[in-house]
Computed example of a mutant assay.
Amino acid sequence: GGGAGIAACCDLRIGTETTRMGFPIARTLGNCLSMSNISRVVALVGPARTKDMIFKARLVEAQEALALGLLNEVVPDVETLQRRADETAKLVASHAPLTLEATKEAVRRIRRTLSREEGEDLILKAYMSEDFREGMDAFLNKRTPNWKGK
């Protein structure tokens, strides 16, 4: 889950054929993503697919992640991943920096990101709940949580 959130922050994402991504928090910890992370994921895959992944607490396999836009490219293994990431970084670094900067800023301006204040009530509700404490305890003790909606 944390890895998928970090990946959503990246401009380009490369994974291996064994990559699995998602946000299983509805089945594990019972918390919620930050408004920034929700905004990023919705911008990448849309609202319906975001809800599908989070509601079902499922991890998306590499080829589906590629089709959804969670990954830009899938390579066979970690060795290839490291080489491909290096090649991609060198390629992007060789391009006009002002074009890249303007593009990144334009996309940021077009995409509405919820502020921390706009979602603070949701964050507090999730993280201060009995369910979150139950989720943490269950996670740490490797057992299935008993959700109560409180």
Rank of each mutant, 00 (worst) to 15 (best):
N37L: 03
R109N: 11
V45S: 02
A57W: 11
S36C: 06
G135Y: 05
V75F: 07
N31I: 10
L70S: 13
Q82P: 08
D121Y: 14
G1E: 04
R20W: 08
C10M: 06
D131M: 01
E105D: 07
T16Y: 00
D137I: 12
R112T: 12
R49Q: 12
K104C: 09
Q82M: 14
T16F: 00
C10I: 07
R20G: 13
S36L: 13
R108D: 05
C32H: 05
C32I: 04
V107K: 07
T80R: 11
W147F: 04
N31Y: 05
S115L: 08
N37K: 04
W147K: 06
L91E: 13
A48C: 05
S36Y: 13
P47C: 07
P97Y: 10
R111I: 15
S39V: 00
M21E: 02
F55L: 09
A43T: 02
I123V: 11
D86Q: 12
G149R: 14
P145G: 04
I54A: 06
L59I: 10
R58T: 12
T113H: 13
L100T: 08
K51D: 10
C10P: 02
E120C: 06
R143V: 04
T19Q: 02
S115Q: 08
G69Q: 00
T103K: 13
N37Y: 05
M53A: 03
E87A: 11
K90S: 14
R49K: 14
L140K: 10
A96E: 15
K142A: 14
L59K: 13
R108C: 00
S34N: 01
I38C: 06
T113G: 12
M53G: 03
R27D: 04
A48Y: 06
F23Y: 09
A43W: 02
G30Y: 00
E120N: 07
T99I: 14
N37G: 08
S39K: 01
L124H: 11
R143S: 08
E61A: 15
R40A: 07
R109G: 05
P97V: 08
A65Q: 00
R27A: 09
A26Y: 09
N141C: 14
E87P: 04
M128T: 11
S34C: 00
T18S: 07
A67F: 10
T50K: 04
V45N: 03
I123H: 11
A67G: 15
G3T: 13
T80C: 12
E73G: 02
H95D: 12
A48N: 11
V45D: 03
V41S: 06
M53P: 06
A89F: 15
T113Q: 15
A7K: 03
I123T: 11
D52K: 07
K125D: 14
V45H: 06
E17I: 09
K51R: 11
A65C: 03
S36E: 13
R40L: 12
G22M: 01
P47W: 10
Q82I: 15
E73A: 04
L140C: 14
M53V: 10
A138Q: 05
L59R: 13
V75N: 03
P76F: 10
R49C: 05
R133D: 13
R109Q: 12
S36A: 11
L12R: 10
M136P: 02
K51T: 02
G69F: 00
A62E: 10
G135M: 09
R108G: 01
E73I: 03
E118V: 03
A93N: 11
G15W: 00
V107T: 10
E17V: 09
T18F: 01
E117N: 02
I14K: 09
